[in-house]
Every structure is written in structure tokens, then in C-alpha cells.
Design a protein around this nucleic acid. Structure first.
Lengths: 179, 179
DNA sequence: CCTAGATAAATCGCGCACGATTTAATCGCA
DNA sequence: TGCGATTAAATCGTGCGCGATTTATCTAGG
């Protein structure tokens, strides 16, 4: 109660007055098929369904695959660094990485310089998996049924969107410590 | 074992031979920042972070909000119909809808014509919530930091992509019952 | 030194999300 | 009519994903 967040009502007041008669009604604005966020949400699920059979062969889930990809790019990283790259919290990564360790793909050990941080590094098996995963991008590209140029443009738009949303969440989500 | 899926290796064979010296290497193809799927994945998380404080006021999670939006669009729907609209399984929806019922936003009752199906309909409170949610689209639009035209184009691209991925998953994911 | 605050992971509880299975009702067809 | 096949939800087990809290370690200030 004491906390004073920006409310939906506040935002609504910023909506330009409904002067233009051709403007969509508020009813329309709440239609599911108008939601960009729903497109993103559902496309994420669709990607997952394409990846699943491919990743099953490797014994990975999709988030696990992303962690492995991050490690193939740069080995011997901390949990925090992985979290930064993937946008995930330690509460998500810790158990996920432990599963990858159980699978023998990596090892976790505390940094000797600073015992707080955990360094994650690939095993031989973890490195080897990269070759097995080599065919996946081509598969997924084929699955999109779209041209390379379109996909590149789409990705650029998404990155812009992501940046905007992240900046906004930073400003409006955090409690008012304007540090 | 007996099942014979299309494997990543199979797909990989469709990859043009690594002859062209200017082609991106397989190493590049596995770079995280080249993954469109990662952009989609991370943008979904970013949307969630923007929605969370807004939906907290309504006492909804993001998937719950989508279900409510679907019901605002068309009330008295079955679990299956909701699943079709949102791309979710009954195993996801059943508990989610039960939580919305506990919150007093809707009621579930079995169809008298066909006792297998469950019909979900909004309560007074469920309808009323629509007004409280009215400001959200404007908030989210503001959060994107992008223009309307861009967002519309982005959504169109995503829908095309989703359609492609879904079609592919249908063909390649299902066991070979080409009935 | 040694303690107050900061920092990195880990832990806990909750809610998705799915595949596989189960339960219950309906349909089809001989 | 009756009984196998189909269909709709529900149930179960596993793995994300997050916020809030906890634990362990490090850093600064006195």
C-alpha cells in the first residue's frame, strides 16, 4: 500500500483523448489478436515445439541449449555472467546448470580468488556436443519457411523492442531509488 | 528407438557444403546473438517484466490475463476452445482456470449436452475487471518506445514466422502417421 | 582487527508449460 | 443394444522462471 507504483490508470491518462472517431475502441485494444505480446509469446512456444525433437536427441531442453550455446561462445563463465547473457536469475540458472553438470556436460567450481562466485566450464563431452548440435540452425531456418532477409529484419525489430521494454521496466519497475 | 524422426544430422546434410569461403562458419551459426529464437525468447521475458507490475494490481499473472482477454472477447467457452486460441494444453489450462475460479472471476461448469466439456463463463467480477485492465494496452505501447507502424510490421512478421514454425512442427514433430 | 554493508549463489514457494497417462462421456457401427 | 474407438478434461511428473529470502564471502571504515 505504501508503495506508490505507476498504475495502469495513470498510464491510461496519457492515452491521447479519444477524439479521432476512427480510433479503435478500448474494446478493440483488449482483443487478443491485437496483442503484439501475444505474438511474441505464441511464437516462443512455436519455436520450442520445433526445437524439442531436435534437442531431445541431444538430451537438452531449450533453455539448457541456450546455456550450452553461451558456453560454446565463451567457456569458464560465472553464473552471473550467464544470467546477464541470457537474462535469467541465479534462481533459474543454479538448478539448470546443476542438471547439466549431472549430465556430465560441464563442471561447476568456486573461484579460488573469490569463493562467492561459481565458475562453469565445459567438459570434453560438453565441447563434443557442439558438433552434434551443428545441424540445428539449418533445421530451424528451414522450419521458419521464411527468407534470410526477412528473418534478419524481424530479429532487428525484436531487438529494438526488447531494448525498449527492458529500459521501461528498469525505470518503472524498480522502486523509486533513482540512484 | 523404433521411431524414426528426422534428425538434426539429416537436416545438416541439407546444409550446403562448407565450400564457400565467405559463408558463416558453423561456429558462427551457433552464436547466441545470431539466434532469432533467442530474440523471441528474451523479448517474451521483457514483456513479462513490463506487464508484471500492471497485472499485480489486478491480481493476475500474464497467462491468466491472456485467458481473461480471450474471455472478454468471447464468453462461455470450453477449455479446448481457450487452448486453441492461446496454443495451450488442457494440462496447462485446467489448473490456471481453477485459480481464476477461486479468485471469483469465472465459473466452470460441465456442459449439460455433453458432460465431457467444461464451459467457462465470466462472473460479474470477471466482466468488471475489463475496465480496470483498459489502461494496460496504452501502458505497454508506451513501454515499447516504438512507433505504431513498426509494431504492426513486427507483429505481421511474427505471425508469419509462427505460422511457418507451427506448420513445420506439425509435419516433422508428429509420428509418421501420414494418414 | 572487526564489524556493517555489499555481493554471488543457493534455496524456497508458486505458477506456468508440456508430454504421458487416466478418467469419464459420447459416438459409431455391426 | 452393446462395445470398441474417439474425444475432453483432469492428473501426474519434470523442468523453467521469478521474487523473496538465506547463506557465505568479500570489502570498507573506524
Amino acid at each position: 500500500m505504501t508503495r506508490h507504483d505507476k498504475t495502469a490508470t495513470e498510464c491510461a491518462t496519457k492515452t491521447p483523448a479519444p477524439d479521432a472517431s476512427s480510433e479503435p475502441s478500448s474494446a478493440d485494444l483488449l482483443r487478443l489478436d491485437n496483442f503484439l505480446c501475444f505474438s511474441v509469446y505464441a511464437t516462443g512456444h512455436a519455436f520450442n515445439r520445433v526445437y524439442k525433437p531436435l534437442l531431445d536427441e541431444l538430451g537438452l531442453t531449450y533453455p539448457q541449449f541456450l546455456v550450452m550455446a553461451a558456453l560454446w561462445e565463451g567457456d569458464d563463465r560465472t553464473i552471473g555472467s550467464l544470467g546477464g547473457a541470457l537474462g535469467l536469475e541465479s534462481s533459474t540458472l543454479t538448478p539448470l546448470v546443476k542438471r547439466l553438470e549431472t549430465a556430465g556436460l560441464l563442471v561447476r567450481r568456486r573461484d579460488t580468488r573469490d569463493e562467492r562466485v561459481v565458475r562453469v566450464s565445459l567438459t570434453e563431452k560438453g565441447h563434443a556436443l557442439r558438433d552434434a548440435a551443428g545441424g540445428i540452425p539449418a533445421c530451424v531456418f528451414e522450419a521458419t519457411g521464411m527468407g534470410l532477409a526477412e528473418l534478419v529484419a524481424l530479429k532487428a525489430g525484436l531487438e529494438r523492442l526488447r531494448k525498449g521494454l527492458t529500459a521501461y521496466a528498469q525505470d518503472h519497475g524498480e522502486p523509486g531509488d533513482g540512484r
